[in-house]
């Protein structure tokens, strides 16, 4: 019995050491700049999109981002999800012309419809690179889901520009950014204070602009989010109730087993 027990103890100690080593090594890997956590209307199980912020964010996308970044998975009709009316969406779409084939078979242009995808600023990736000094601006349709840190990361990049620390060698045409991996980003600082004029009187500070456009982009990446969470709450409550009932039935069924 004795050797068995001591072996067991040794095994337990070995297991504990192994576990401790695993856990200790974990934080060593967490690196890169700390992300800001500005707090979002859409976080948490009951979070919803702040419609006004998302609409201001759309304005930023339209006036600033859309010069280089596409939003090709989204449709103009999706804008109804941030509170635009059908007429407003039609007007937004109609202000853009998209390529089509005319009745004569030749390439032509027509005003966009709500059913159209957002028009991309460049015809293709090569055209984008040619126009932008070799850099390819990523599509923003799911950018919030495509980056570690999500909204916090995008917000962090937009507000993370500054002077490089002394001694840091910057690449040609590169800009310093606290949050961007490697701290060198090809995109020049896109947002400045007072970059846009808000019609609702909100003061367009840099933080405000970044906050608004990230709210908009989070909506574009997760247009289903609000209904997803609403359904989710109902499903969880239903399952909790069902678990309770089933457990009571189980106790009753098993009550005669000894």
């Amino acid at each position: 019995m004795r050797p068995a027990l001591s072996t067991a103890r040794a095994g337990g100690q070995f297991a504990a050491t192994l576990l401790a080593a695993t856990l200790l090594a974990a934080p060593a890997i967490a690196q890169e700049g700390q992300l800001p956590h500005p707090g979002w209307s859409f976080s948490g199980p009951f979070g919803t999109f702040d419609r006004a912020a998302a609409q201001r964010g759309f304005q930023i996308y339209k006036e600033v981002c859309s010069n280089c970044h596409s939003l090709k998975e989204a449709y103009y009709r999706n804008l109804e999800g941030i509170g635009l009316s059908e007429e407003q969406v039609k007007a937004v779409a109609a202000s853009v012309t998209v390529p089509t084939i005319g009745d004569d078979g030749q390439p032509a242009e027509r005003p966009a419809l709500p059913s159209d995808h957002f028009k991309s600023p460049f015809a293709n990736d090569k055209a984008a690179r040619a126009a932008l000094n070799g850099a390819l601006p990523p599509d923003l349709s799911v950018i919030v889901k495509a980056r570690e840190g999500g909204p916090d990361y995008v917000y962090g990049v937009l507000t993370g520009y500054g002077e490089p620390p002394a001694g840091m060698k910057m690449g040609d045409g590169m800009n310093y950014n606290r949050v961007f991996p490697g701290h060198q980003i090809a995109m020049p600082q896109p947002l400045q204070a007072d970059q846009v004029q808000y019609s609702d009187g909100t003061k367009p500070t840099l933080d405000q602009e970044a906050h608004d456009v990230v709210t908009f982009l989070t909506f574009i990446a997760n247009p289903e989010m609000e209904s997803r969470k609403q359904i989710g709450v109902k499903i969880i409550l239903f399952l909790a109730m069902l678990t309770g009932i089933t457990y009571v039935v189980k106790r009753r069924v098993w009550s005669d087993v000894h």
Binding site: I245, V249, D256
Partner: peptide, 25 residues
């Protein structure tokens, strides 16, 4: 089957619970 039948008094309650859980399922 099974060891020991449920008592008759219990039967009604148990059937009701089964009905509820069946409906919920």
């Amino acid at each position: 089957h099974g060891p020991g039948h449920p008592h008759a008094a219990d039967q009604g309650k148990r059937d009701f619970l089964k009905l509820v859980s069946g409906a919920a399922a």
